[in-house]
Design a protein around this nucleic acid. Structure first.
Lengths: 257, 257
DNA sequence: CTCACGATTACGACGCGTGAGCGTAC
DNA sequence: GGTACGCTCACGCGTCGTAATCGTGA
């Protein structure tokens, strides 16, 4: 027999919590004194320990009440397994949700690095692009247009929701491009950028210039259309083509397409 | 200029939510008519979009109020980066919490398979064993006692918090052992179990019988002491030694240690 | 006059923490 | 008779959904 205070000390549960469990009907004291004091029995202690265990496992009090039942009997192994399995499934779903949130945050940080600010549109674009349906469409498109080897390289491109360090580099690069849109393509600043863009492109496309070109053509939006790849709207792509074109015609590289 | 209903339709936010944001001071309408109608401006719309964006990213309304400030000005890129970074950190912490919860649930399921029920003790044991300090102690102990090669094998043992399918096998096996504790070691049932235990041990210890023995000696608790490895208390281990001993002396195997 | 739209007020959900104000046990 | 313990309200937290009841606009 325990008073509420003793039970609280014995189990580490607060007195308030014990009264709350009583109020919920989750843990009803075995008896009450004439003066209204709650009196807990050993059975109460056992049930409380089951409650605490399920709480540890992330069950809500309501679920605990369902699982333990009014009687307090553990309803048999199969029922336990079902309850635990459901909890596990719910937990996994929540983890999946958080994983997507994390991708979104990475996206936001990258957008911030690219533009110095970001808007709802940026986020919405990514919420959409993370939908399974869009992923499927994109994959299907890639399967039609690219060979297996090519897709292998494309899938290794820095992924927007990740914390791939190359993303930071790419964001910084694109930001400088955006800040240089007024520069004529032949200016030293623009040509410096062109050189860095070419280097970056080579590195992420594993030196496969032809694939880079093919990909570049595929993602080019119509003027005014939204960017197919974040940060690469028609204006930016046109400018990049201009400076890289000049770079390849006159610059140090002077090489292929 | 929008009435509350138009703004709601334009943004997908419920009227109730807009009124709530007003009440919080998070989104105050630009004006109010004499009759009390809220009137929203284009600036209000922009601010609402920022609010929605941050909500997408998992910010609480209170955090949003802090980040956006009373003025509504975005406080500069660095401040944004800080806010997003903090949110990312919080998100990661939450993910880590859920990962541990998942391990706990796996543990509970395994305990259930082993014993047909489980208690707070079972869970507490694992809560403790998942503490970083205990992990460190165990690692240190293993470094003292086992060679690098041996530790390589030990680390590949089925891990309790995982969903390694071998765990299921192990749990089922141990449960049958527990149910057979009354059987004499030479009974066919006990000998069948011994054979399966030996097979299982060989498979998870990559055939290294000597290491299996060494490990077995290390985890053997004093009689009455709690099990060092879940499910392997002194009684169980003594019984397993008895049946496997008989098996190796008289059974089909008839082999080493 | 109607009828969609606006307003305010308040309860509910979750799991208690934290008082306030009072009676009880030792 | 002190004081540690118990009791019952009741607010607060976060984010609205869901009435209920009433006034306004076209």
């Amino acid at each position: 027999m325990y008073t509420i205070g003793k039970l609280a000390r014995a189990t580490g549960v607060s007195i308030r919590a014990l009264r709350y469990y009583d109020e919920l009907g989750l843990l009803t004291p075995a008896a009450t004194t004439e003066t209204g004091y709650r009196v807990y029995s050993e059975d109460n202690l056992l049930r409380l320990q089951q409650i605490l265990m399920l709480k540890q496992l992330g069950f809500s009090l309501k679920r605990i009440a369902e699982v333990l039942g009014h009687a307090g009997a553990l309803s048999g192994e199969a029922a336990w397994r079902t309850a635990l399995g459901q909890q596990l499934a719910a937990l996994r779903a929540e983890q999946e949700r958080l994983r997507r949130l994390e991708q979104l945050l990475h996206t936001a940080l990258t957008a911030l690095r690219m533009k110095g600010s970001f808007q709802l549109d940026d986020i919405e674009l990514f919420v959409r692009s993370l939908q399974p349906e869009n992923q499927r469409q994109r994959d299907e498109f890639r399967r039609r247009v690219f060979t297996d080897d090519e897709r292998h390289i494309l899938e290794a491109l820095p992924n927007f929701g990740s914390d791939d360090p190359r993303l930071e580099e790419w964001a910084a690069l694109l930001r400088r491009v955006r800040d240089s849109l007024q520069e004529p393509p032949f200016s030293p600043q623009a040509q410096q950028l062109a050189a860095e863009l070419v280097t970056y492109g080579r590195s992420v496309f594993a030196g496969d210039d032809a694939l880079l070109d093919k990909y570049w053509q595929q993602i080019k939006p119509q003027p005014g259309d939204p960017a197919a790849v974040y940060g690469l709207d028609a204006e930016m792509m046109a400018y990049i083509e201009a400076i890289v074109g000049w770079y390849e015609a006159h610059g140090e590289g002077g090489a292929d397409g």
